[in-house]
Nucleic acid binder design. Structure first.
Length: 305
DNA sequence: CGCATTTCCTGGTAGC
DNA sequence: TGCTACCAGGAAATGC
């Protein structure tokens, strides 16, 4: 494992959301600026956030969504456009409270928000994004045209509308490797590399199985497994690799519950055969070739080419 | 359009 | 020790 990693997937982002909400909900943004990063779509339109207040700290998949309400009634009438601050942590995005980190190295801090909290305290939010894989931008509320992944995102894992049949129907839409398709965020929101590998192992599905070949029974097991690993990880504040810390300096414990991720050449906890690592869809993937058998033929419901 | 591949980006690490 | 080459990853861009 390398770097200051959390690999923020749904549980890690939910952990951050829960930490940010008490601090930011109801706070006024007096200034919002991009610092130490080139202009571009990743950290964009921040000036629009000035003179607004943060209504809520929400999460959609791996994105944090902060609806902003204007403080200027006249402007609200003129624009009639509600705004939203969109934050994606990417690989290395970290949200910091400046007053808690007086000696913080500013080298990779990309944006800064000057705030007045709902307790009338001044506060400064810093967004450190070392590798610049993150996003921190203001958009018209709900307008995700510049964020195609968010735009096409599937239902939240715990959305009651996400039934077994709905999930199976989503998987049926693609013939790409089921692991790759999960990472696209289209069948379900918030699943990244770690939890995809873990859930596929629990459901005994080979990660290279064409998504549409996954049977109804396997789809049901996969959805249950995804919910199980995500819920457990949220409970223990996510997976911490190396020296990552949450906003409040805590360490997620889900690493203790991993069965396959990062465990190539170690014995499968279920059958004892050595686990395999293989690049699938350009991503490092971990599975048990023995108990995650790849089906040889498509199910009868899928037309042969 | 669907799917596969490449790019973005930096710091940690292996190997010499 | 110092240097190079390589690797990690989510989402977007590009290629076919």
């Amino acid at each position: 494992m390398k770097g200051r990693f959390a690999i923020p997937e749904l549980p890690e982002v939910e952990t951050v959301r829960r930490e940010l909400a008490p601090w930011l909900t109801g706070a006024t943004i007096t200034q919002a600026v991009r610092v130490n990063a080139p202009a571009g779509p990743k950290y964009a339109n921040l000036e629009l956030a000035a003179n607004t207040f943060i209504q809520a700290v929400n999460r959609r998949g791996k994105f944090l969504l902060l609806p902003l309400d204007t403080l200027d009634a006249a402007a609200a009438v003129q624009s009639s456009e509600q705004l939203e601050l969109v934050i994606h942590l990417g690989m290395t995005g970290t949200v910091l409270r400046a007053e808690d980190n007086p000696n913080y190295a500013m080298k990779h801090v990309r944006t800064r928000l000057e705030l007045t909290t709902n307790k009338a305290q001044p506060s400064t939010l810093l967004f450190d994004d070392t590798r610049r894989f993150g996003r921190f931008l203001v958009v018209p509320a709900g307008d995700y045209r510049t964020l195609p992944t968010l735009h096409q995102m599937g239902l939240e894992p715990f959305d009651p509308n996400l039934t077994d049949k709905y999930f199976k129907d989503m998987l049926a839409k693609s013939t790409t490797a089921v692991k790759t398709y999960l990472l696209s965020q289209k069948p379900i929101a918030g699943v990244g590399n770690i939890y995809a590998d873990e859930a596929l192992w629990h459901a005994r599905i080979h990660p290279e199985t064409p998504s549409a070949w996954v049977s109804s029974a396997k789809a049901r097991k996969l959805l249950a497994a995804l919910r199980e690993v995500l819920a457990k990880s949220i409970e223990v504040q996510g997976t911490t690799l190396r020296d990552y810390r949450t906003v409040n300096g805590e360490v997620g414990q889900f690493g203790n519950y991993l069965n396959v991720y990062g465990k190539a050449e170690e014995p499968c906890p279920r059958c004892g055969k050595l686990l395999t690592r293989r690049v699938i869809g350009g991503r490092s993937s971990h599975f048990c070739a023995s108990c995650q058998q790849r089906r040889r033929k498509p199910p009868s419901s899928v037309k042969e080419a």
